[in-house]
Amino acid sequence: MGLSKFLRRQTERWVDARLGPEYEEATRALAVRQNEYGFDPFGFHRDSLRYAALIARFFYRDWFRTETFGLEQLPRSGGLLLVANHSGQLPFDGVCIGASMLLDAHPPRLVRTMVERFVPAVPFASYLFNRWGQITGTPDNCRRLLADGATILVFPEGARGISKPFSERYRLQDFGLGFMRLALQANTPIIPVAVIGAEEQAPAVNLKPLARSLGLPAFPVVPFPPFFPLVPLPTRYRLHFGAPLTFTGDPDDDDETITDKVRVVKSSIQSLIQLGLEERKNVFW
């Protein structure tokens, strides 16, 4: 008992020293609800965030040496829906967008992503994601958080995006429509985000027959050890945030009307991607 408490305190102290006052200030400024035990209704716990923040900051600053553009265009308050391209086999794009909003946006925002519905059945991930502000991906959860002024990150390409092969890089896959209905319902501005760099972090081919026989959504293989894309290549990330887009209309409109609005978001991400690719001189620096 005594030992584990001592170790925990030592770890906390070490993590805090690494994170420094910048982080301290950022988390204090986060606009989140908290009950007397420090938890928000979705299980977010400010003091637990530091571990995730340390790891996220490492990937954001050191591994991917991320540059951000356009953060100053974000509204200073109210709910936000960040909509980004998804790639790279493992969701480091989400990690880095989260880190940018926490460490470099003014005021800092806690990004909440909608995690897959199987995650709550996975030991440790089930509650750690919760403590770090991530939520089970149900439309109702999203609706509640947007109404509460939260910042939600969605990847409308979903699994189609993250597990696409290297040959499809920077080609946006089909977008889901759900995010648009939620934005209309909550009257939330949409921020298009282009992630440049993640699409090259794991140049994978997808072994489709193997994936199918294993019952997995994809089975990506990369041409370097350990051949499964666990460690991403240290490409340089560039995050381009676009101007807020606001849409009006009936959230229960038929798919065609919603698709038109989604197309606006998609093309705005596509042009941010174009811009980012043109400005970039090298994948790695």
Binding site: R117, P120, I135, T138, D140, N141, R144
Partner: peptide, 14 residues
């Protein structure tokens, strides 16, 4: 009782 809904991994939060 609220138990009639049942605890499930894919339950929405509320």
């Amino acid at each position: 009782s609220a138990n009639v809904y049942g605890p499930r991994p894919d339950n929405t939060q509320f």
